[in-house]
Amino acid sequence: MDGKVIDFAPFGELHIPQIPKIFGLDITPTKHVFFMWLAAILLIIIMTKVAKGYKHSLIPKKFSGFFEIMIVFVRDEIAKPTIGIGYEKFLPYLLTAFFFILFGNFLGLIPYSATFTSNIGVTATLAAFTFIMTQFGGMRQNGVWGYCKGLVPHGIPLWLLPLMIPVEFLGLLTKPFALAIRLFANMVAGHTVILALIGLIFFMKTIFVAPVSIGFALFIYLLEILVALIQAYIFTMLSSLFIGMAVHQDH
């Protein structure tokens, strides 16, 4: 669903200007890149506005108050219970990831737009950031050697070590992989189901399927609003959980 043309079906289309290849690599922005930049710009504008709202008084205005609910939710429901002591250091990353994914998911629900979170490259990069945060967070708290030693559960017999070390190492890499696949598949699935339902009309070549098709597509669309919220929550929650497990290894 990615492409170099932003399509406004009956009203024409917008061609993204091409950039000459550098070292044989095509670095022209695609649809997804365009919407990712849009989300980033929106986030910068909105969050600066929200932060400015606290300059005069700590009581938020209407606009800031709406975002304060979500920010406090991430702090109190996600970061605090899962990371525990020292959660403040990871809060900026978690908030950034949460709002970036949330904006991406919701931008994709606007007609004629594209969901950049349904691109495996984007989700894999986000998961890689979580992986880096997890490793460095754990190493800073426990020391490099202490962290590596803590990966393998203590109290196991010595002859099990050659088996346990590769398994634990693989487990380390599986977590961000699952994180990337989960967000990617969830965002692709909803759009694909809508496409299939709408495609049913053209496949059967009759207009009588249309009411059923559109009805189901609308239902899936409403479900996608829910999924957009839940996936942003899940990604942040699991990131926070992994960070918490790396920082406080003893339990």
Binding site: A178, R182, A185, N186, I234
Partner: peptide
């Protein structure tokens, strides 16, 4: 909260299959 985490993990497994 713990239900959503567990559901996400189960979902992740089935997404591998998909």
């Amino acid at each position: 909260t713990s239900m959503i985490i567990a559901a996400a993990l189960i979902e992740g497994m089935s997404f591998f299959g998909l």
